[in-house]
Design a protein around this nucleic acid. Structure first.
Lengths: 226, 226
DNA sequence: TGTTTTTTGGTAGTATTACTATTATTTTTG
DNA sequence: CAAAAATAATAGTAATACTACCAAAAAACA
């Protein structure tokens, strides 16, 4: 029996040395993700990570040129992984409405660890991305980082979902905006549920968050202009 | 003729010493806002601001204990100011639907400088808040900062808008979530229009952004459960 | 007007961050 | 077993995010 391993290959400029091909690299990924989840991007340093994996700062710098590059690596990993899951669970579905429902479920549900990716725990990754992903684009460096392809995976997914919306409502003029609104909202609303409950409505409950955004999506596209 | 000055009084724990009552304090606000807009929160330091207003780091630290407190000051100022504008332009309107339309216009339009607040340029403030406000809550300190009231103004506004939604659709279960989704989306979509256009749909045009979110809001609340 | 307060300026210092550079040691691989 | 590659260890730099202290200037008040 072959173990099924999902190897997610990311663009060359998301790292200095591919972390998936060495033991230390994998440790940096797995423990880095955990540390990021524990202390957050602001407090996260390569020095702390180094002491956690019993290596040195300089060794980590050989894999990633900065903690921002490391975050972008995880960010792209997440969206590449998400796309695989979405494609797999929708490619044999005829009805675009059903496909869209499934996609929204994928985008808004709490994720479980995917055992096919040994050094990344997707349940943790989702938390980290929810908390940190806005920080990838809300900077003055966004144009430079966009130029070197740091947002490619995210754009790819958005455009794929957008296509499904166009199948359902070809005249709806804002499919991309709607998709990114749903994604960002799912992250933020779950966060509000935990930390700033007056900014949301008991969306901590999985089904409510999915109901909120599914409803928002379909009512928006199906009634536009009516 | 009396000059009409809008004095926005903020909570005591948003500063160490009230910046609105001294010349230096006002300079810190006005120039700090401009500097923040120019270089972004990550690059912004009190040292740079000090050299810009010809004072010293230590003098600025007498007003704000950190740049994060300074950001929260601006954040609360923005939402307090926004609320005043919304109240003023809706309190004589009967129809809740009209009121909601006006509110969405306020929340999604590019703002112009309000001459009644001499040391804050609201047009700049809006840009800064759009870019930096997610960073106020997406941190590990959010619970502590929430406890000391750093999010009060924002919550107040959200709850006010939420009330209008309940007037229109009393059975809609997610009014708060919808309001924060609209606000966050208006910030992010405009940003995408400028920097990551493939994540949105020409919402750089004012009217489109307003149309997108007005439509999303009304269709969501009026068709829920249908 | 003179004298206290209050406010600001100036300097210094600390621990930490975000790196870069260099050399020594270990591990891998051909 | 030798050569190459990877990692460890150490050191160093400029900048950040502060704190502390004292002197000078400005404002308030008596």
């Amino acid at each position: 029996m072959t173990s099924s391993i999902l190897h997610i290959k990311l663009e060359e400029n998301l790292f200095l040395k591919d972390p998936t091909i060495s033991k230390l690299g994998k440790l940096i990924l797995s423990e880095g993700l955990l540390l990021l989840n524990e202390i957050g991007l602001e407090e996260f340093t390569f020095k702390k990570l180094a002491s956690r994996v019993n290596t040195t700062e300089s060794s980590i710098y050989r894999y990633f040129e900065s903690k921002h590059q490391f975050l972008f690596y995880l960010f792209n990993f997440y969206w590449a992984w998400m796309e695989i899951g979405i494609v797999l669970s929708t490619n044999n579905i005829e009805s675009p409405k059903k496909r869209l429902s499934i996609i929204i479920k994928h985008l808004t549900s709490v994720v479980e660890n995917d055992v096919r990716t040994p050094y990344i725990d997707e349940a943790i990754l989702q938390k980290v991305i929810a908390m940190e992903s806005s920080k990838t684009f809300l900077t003055k460096k966004v144009d430079d980082e966009n130029k070197i392809g740091y947002f490619l995976q995210y754009k790819k997914l958005v455009s794929a979902v957008s296509k499904v919306i166009k199948e359902i409502s070809p005249d709806y003029p804002y499919p991309n905006a709607l998709v990114t609104t749903i994604i960002e909202s799912s992250f933020h609303q779950r966060f509000f549920g935990l930390h700033l409950p007056r900014l949301t409505n008991d969306l901590h409950d999985e089904n409510n968050l999915n109901d909120f955004l599914t409803n928002l999506c379909f009512n928006t596209i199906e009634n536009y202009g009516k």
